[in-house]
Design a protein around this nucleic acid. Structure first.
Lengths: 220, 220
DNA sequence: AACTCTTTGTGAAATTTTTCACATATAGGT
DNA sequence: ACCTATATGTGAAAAATTTCACAAAGAGTT
């Protein structure tokens, strides 16, 4: 199997979420329909699904159930992964609900903060520990994935700690782009500020995504 | 000036934030240095900066102050844009602080919710209105940018309302990929769930970003 | 059973994005 | 004033991603 691009992974993740609601609707789903509900194109969908080793049937499409199963085994780790989050404020609290609502093969097991008033408390059943215990807790709880929601200035040092303690993937919500020095660590940077600045940039001009829309509408 | 890619816009937004702290450090900044602190490469930086019409000096680099000025005039709208957010919970509250902390040419002027207990209150000086007033308030306040932080199921209808009322850019934090039908509207989709699922996917295997790292380290 | 029409799957082309390679510029030393 | 060493700026190559175009499959119809 060839290397699958990050964009493809993202789209497959989206397809899965769209498929879940489709499951009750019908037994088969067409690439074209999946494209419609994911804002993509049918060819793109089929290209993406190629990586899954899941065959569709001409004129029928893909078995919804089978496709979901393929996506699950493609995306999900075999056994559930433990996740922690560093920094406890509004943002991290909103992440809590992401994990609570949708039970993937991911469980949020702890959060960390420096603020003594938060340490020792527990939100939605997730205990908050002091950042000093980060390393030991990561090892103790066998944590694989870390979420950075701390201040920009602490992002690098916290991620260093995470990596030394054995974390394999980091989702970084701070503005600080992490310095990657090891090739076996995956870093996902979510730059919310850039998102707003992009929105501002594009609100200046018009007809920026004209191409995209023409492409999609042309086929419909 | 040629069309600038979205990725370039994102990186320029990042460069700006990195430059602000650089400003106190030195009068000139090298593409190489900017690359280091942005996790990029020097060529990429220079390519990006090409679009700015800002010249660097061989052996000296770019005047930090000049570069910032160029980026500002490139990214920022001439007059401040008004922003609203729909859905008032932990996540949106965390967005409030993004706008409070960094005063761009963007001001968050209102938020909206259906929950009557929230309507009429005010957080950080931002008033919360009932969603029924969305359209009228957008027009009244001359809002250009909308943030979607509501439930997935309401995302499409709220965005439709926003667009009809005159909003030009939408930043969508819901999982629902918005159906774009007009070419003069910019949609930025932030898929946090996909981010976590990507992190989970990559935590399974190793050596995924080996290439990226080799590229970056090779030069250093 | 043959035909038609729709949909999948995928080489190949097109497009986009990144990297290479190097001409050009210039600061600083001698 | 000349030399050298280091940066920029960018055409061209390479790599990655998306789209085209069409062969192959098979469901439904006559």
């Amino acid at each position: 199997m060839n290397k699958v691009s990050e964009k493809t992974i993202e789209r497959i993740s989206l397809y899965r979420r769209r498929l879940v609601s489709e499951l009750a609707e019908s037994d088969f789903v067409l690439s074209r329909h999946l494209a419609d509900i994911s804002n993509s194109t049918d060819v793109q969908v089929r290209r993406d699904l190629m990586h899954l080793g899941c065959k569709g049937a001409p004129r029928k499409g893909y078995s919804t159930k089978e496709l979901l199963k393929s996506i699950n085994s493609f995306l999900d780790p075999i056994k559930s992964k433990n996740v922690i989050i560093v920094g406890l404020q509004n943002f991290s609290r909103s992440i809590f609900s992401v994990f609570k609502d949708r039970k993937q093969k991911l469980s949020l097991v702890a959060c960390f903060d420096i603020d003594e008033s938060k340490v020792g408390t527990s939100i939605d059943g997730i205990p908050c520990y002091h950042i000093d215990n980060l390393s030991s807790k990561i090892k103790e709880m066998n944590v694989n994935i870390g979420i950075l929601s701390c201040s920009d200035s602490n992002a690098q040092s916290v991620s260093d700690m995470m990596i030394v303690a054995g974390i394999k993937s980091i989702v970084n919500f701070t503005c600080h782009p992490l310095n990657i020095t090891r090739s076996d660590i995956y870093i996902e940077q979510i730059d919310i500020t850039a998102a707003f600045e992009k929105a501002a940039y594009y609100s200046k001009s018009i007809l920026f995504n004209a191409d995209k829309i023409n492409k999609i509408n042309k086929i419909k």
